[in-house]
């Protein structure tokens, strides 16, 4: 569409320039600036992480001193049939959560990027769920899904649940959690897409219109490629977020019916704070941390996000 133009010269930050090299480092502030963040991260994330790792090799019920038991908890974890089950539940929640939220947020966000006043009002309404705390959201939905006094009884028959017995079946309960999650988090991702869509230069669309591209073609050929970095960011947040969904499950289903919605984070909570078996719970927590980290790294690596190329480069 346009010929590549030379990249603009980088501004010199804080008066410090190194004429010799024009690398990124040249313009960045010193390490001192990172000290507060590193301290907070160290005390509240790294230290507990290390302690949890250590606890995973011990037996401890919260009283007295943890007793070293070596690899016992890890052996139990690997042979625990419940782990596989909760892994499956977590995978379903993660994949379905992403698959439901991404298209919704993308379409809503692009739609809301339009300048019309009606759209601003509508997006403000859609945005409301984000202002509620997760616990409050789950409590409200729990009341709504009561088959006798909530909406479930009247809406249920339309979606193949004549008794409104949504939370009473494993499939229904999972669906409810995914739906509540989407209701809660789509607005946030919508906001990201909205902001990103507004940044797409108008002249791209003008040029495309002149070239005869319709709306759908413009969406696929201009909007979507321009939103590439946003899709990656939003997907990473969604996937890690769905993977660690906890309070919705705790309040809406309490892991039930049976073990039907016992995801990994819920199982970890149950072992730590209901069964008071801190050792096995810590092993599970460690697995979760490793999983989450690996997943984010994978996304970043395979999406090209690490190269951080601006979608505006060359425009």
């Amino acid at each position: 569409m346009t010929a590549p133009a030379p990249a603009p010269a980088r501004p010199a930050f804080l008066g410090r320039t190194r004429a010799a090299s024009h690398t990124d480092n040249a313009a960045r502030p010193g390490a001192l600036y990172a000290v507060p963040a590193i301290l907070v991260f160290g005390v509240f994330a790294l230290v507990p992480l290390v302690l949890v790792g250590w606890l995973s090799f011990t037996t401890w019920n919260g009283l007295g001193d943890p007793r070293w038991t070596g690899l016992g908890n890890w052996r139990d974890l690997i042979t625990d049939p419940g782990l596989l089950h909760s892994l499956r539940i977590t995978a379903v929640l993660t994949i379905a959560g992403w698959a439901v939220q991404t298209p919704l947020a993308l379409l809503l966000g692009v739609w809301a990027a339009g300048a019309q006043r009606g759209r601003a009002v509508a997006s403000a309404l859609v945005f409301l769920p984000l202002l509620l705390s997760g616990a409050a959201t789950a409590l409200v939905w729990k009341a709504l899904l009561d088959p006798n006094f909530g909406l479930a009884g009247s809406v249920g028959p339309w979606v193949g649940m004549p008794d409104g017995n949504l939370l009473g079946t494993a499939g229904g309960a999972l669906t409810a959690i995914i739906a509540v999650g989407a209701w809660q988090f789509v607005p946030f991702h919508m906001l990201m897409y909205q902001a990103a869509a507004r940044n797409v230069p108008a002249h791209l669309y003008e040029a495309a219109t002149i070239d005869g591209a319709g709306r759908v073609r413009q969406f696929w050929s201009i909007t979507l490629p321009q939103l590439r970095n946003t899709v990656v960011t939003s997907s990473t947040l969604m996937i890690v977020g769905s993977m660690t969904t906890f309070e919705t499950i705790l309040i809406l289903t309490d892991g039930g019916p049976g073990a039907g919605t016992q995801s990994m984070p819920f199982r970890m909570y149950q072992q730590a704070f209901k069964s008071f078996e801190m050792g096995p719970a810590s092993a599970l927590a460690t697995v979760l941390v490793l999983f989450g980290t690996a997943l984010s790294l994978l996304i970043v690596r395979f999406s090209g996000f690490s190269r951080m190329r601006s979608t505006l480069e060359g425009i």
Binding site: L51, A136, F246, E247, M278, S282, A285
Partner: peptide, 18 residues
């Protein structure tokens, strides 16, 4: 009280060392 419970629950793995 469910609301308040989330506080304790939300502490999750990290601070369970108490």
């Amino acid at each position: 009280a469910g609301l308040a419970g989330i506080g304790a629950a939300g502490m999750g793995a990290a601070p369970l060392t108490g």
